[in-house]
Design a protein around this nucleic acid. Structure first.
Length: 428
RNA sequence: GUGACCGUAGCUCAAUGGCAGAGCACCUGGUUGUGGCCCAGGAGGUUGGGGGUUCGAGUCCCCUCGGUCACCCCA
């Protein structure tokens, strides 16, 4: 049957079979965040449109063509969040968190929305964990954030990931670099493709990560931003690298790494995974020292990153990382149709006693109910048979050994608790 | 927004323009009340939708919807 309704383009239903990945990610993220002293925050799924225009930047693709913007009934222009950082920075300012001891270290988990053409690892609604630390310019904080990301992925079981690191300078030094880059590109104007000609006008730094073969020689010989950093940025970057090197956190120095959001300053980084298509970045972020001020707050530095759940899961599958399975049910209650009433009451008692129970429905053969029990992987099947009920008892079958025991109804809970505690690993 | 490829059973896929099929999954039986393995049987389809060509369309053509992948860009 073809379904009358289907999910909107670029959205995902996460069916039970997929859930273990999500549960595992969520669990691991909370654990690692706590380990590094980060606290969870939740911000609205939509904000005033202006926040993103100011925060993310007017000329960015996100703002120009990817936002889900709508008018509400009060004629306010609202936008489904296309990223977390602006909303979290807004909350930081709105609740005067800059008056608390700094740095304020936060993380958030939830859906973000961008109107894009879907492809491998890219969806219109996707899930991110966003990590943000405000109020500290010490490169030790950059190190901490990078190390947190590294730790998170190691904890998840990743072996082969590629850390990409760069510095994009600050308002003091970046303009000089952009001028130099533009001048260089104008000299090579007829060697670059149409996209790059357009980038040169709109967002010059982006020419650096052009993928067109034609542009590669030009990129290779282009001026490097690291040669243009001001003293402050250079010192910051070198200190961070020293910390990373000492910690044995290996990375690729990638002078072509630039990011599409306007707020980034100094440190920028991404983590790439293989085997998940063209959208290889499972994590991306950097420092945004001007953002809080841009949003009307005090001049407070910040750094953070976002990591995309769906891409992480793709990468896990590509690398053969499987999440721990959910625990199966403890018991299935099977019955003859004549004993169903007893079975129904027993299932309620078992659940009240904390025993995970599947009740067989309908009037089916015991064979069929046993097959169901086998499929569910329960440790025990409780057979509510006529003879047993007449004696005030049930038969309990150990699904691993096949051994059966008649247990008085009044003792079933105690019996099962004892049995389940001695054999926590159910039959599979 | 641009481009390429693809829509057949719940899933993965067959079917030269000529009877819509297989494997897996599901259900039932093989045991008057017993799972897995095995065996037998069953159910399940508007071939995404609409139009056209043709004696005849899953197959060819057009439109449309959807998916996938890539570009742009991003997690």
């Amino acid at each position: 049957m073809t379904s009358r309704y289907q999910r909107p383009t670029g959205t995902l239903d996460i069916l039970p079979a997929e859930r273990p990945y999500w549960r595992y990610l969520e669990h691991t993220v909370h654990e690692v965040m706590h380990l590094y002293g980060y606290e969870q925050i939740d911000v609205p799924v939509f904000e005033h449109t202006e926040l993103y225009v100011r925060g993310v930047g007017e000329g960015t693709d996100i703002v120009e063509k990817e936002m889900y913007t709508f008018q509400d009934k009060g004629n306010d222009s609202l936008t489904l969040r296309p990223e977390f950082t602006a909303g979290i920075a807004r909350a930081y300012v709105e609740h005067h968190l800059y008056k608390q001891p700094q740095p304020v270290k936060l993380y958030a988990i939830g859906p973000v929305f961008r109107y894009e053409r879907p492809q491998a690892g890219r969806y219109r609604q996707h899930t991110q964990v966003s990590v943000e630390a405000f109020g500290e310019e010490d490169p030790a904080l950059d190190f901490e954030v990078l190390h947190l990301a590294y730790h998170l992925f190691r904890q998840l079981g990743f072996q082969h990931l590629y850390f990409q690191l760069n510095s994009t300078g600050c308002p003091a030094c970046r303009p000089r670099y952009v001028e130099a880059l533009k001048a260089y590109y104008l000299e090579h104007y007829d060697e670059i493709d149409a996209d790059c000609k357009r980038r040169l006008q709109r967002n010059p730094l982006r020419v650096l990560d052009c993928k067109a073969d034609q542009c590669q020689p030009v990129i290779m010989a282009a001026p490097k931003i690291l040669d243009y950093l001001c003293d402050d940025c250079r010192t910051h970057f070198h200190t961070l690298r020293a910390y990373l090197d000492a910690a044995g956190l290996s990375y690729v120095l990638n002078p072509r790494l630039v990011r599409g959001l306007d707020y980034y300053t100094k440190t920028v980084f991404e983590i790439w995974a293989e085997g998940i298509g063209a959208q290889a970045a499972i994590c991306g972020g950097g420092r945004y020292d001007g953002l809080v001020a841009e949003l009307g707050g005090p001049s407070v530095p910040g750094i953070g990153f976002g990591a995309g759940w769906e891409r992480i899961i793709l990468a896990m599958k590509a690398q053969g990382i499987t999440p721990p399975p959910l625990p199966p049910l403890h018991v299935l209650v099977a019955h003859m149709s004549s004993t169903k009433a007893t079975a129904v009451q027993l299932s309620a008692q078992l659940r009240q006693a904390g025993i995970a129970t599947w009740l067989a429905f309908g009037d089916r053969s015991l064979k069929s109910q046993m097959r169901e029990a086998n499929r569910l992987g329960v440790a025990y099947t409780i057979i509510v048979g006529e003879g047993e009920v007449a004696r005030g008892a049930v038969t309990v079958r150990d699904m691993r050994t096949g051994q059966q025991t008649e247990v008085p109804l009044t003792d079933v809970v105690t019996w099962l608790r004892a049995a389940l505690s001695t054999s926590p690993e159910p039959a599979s």
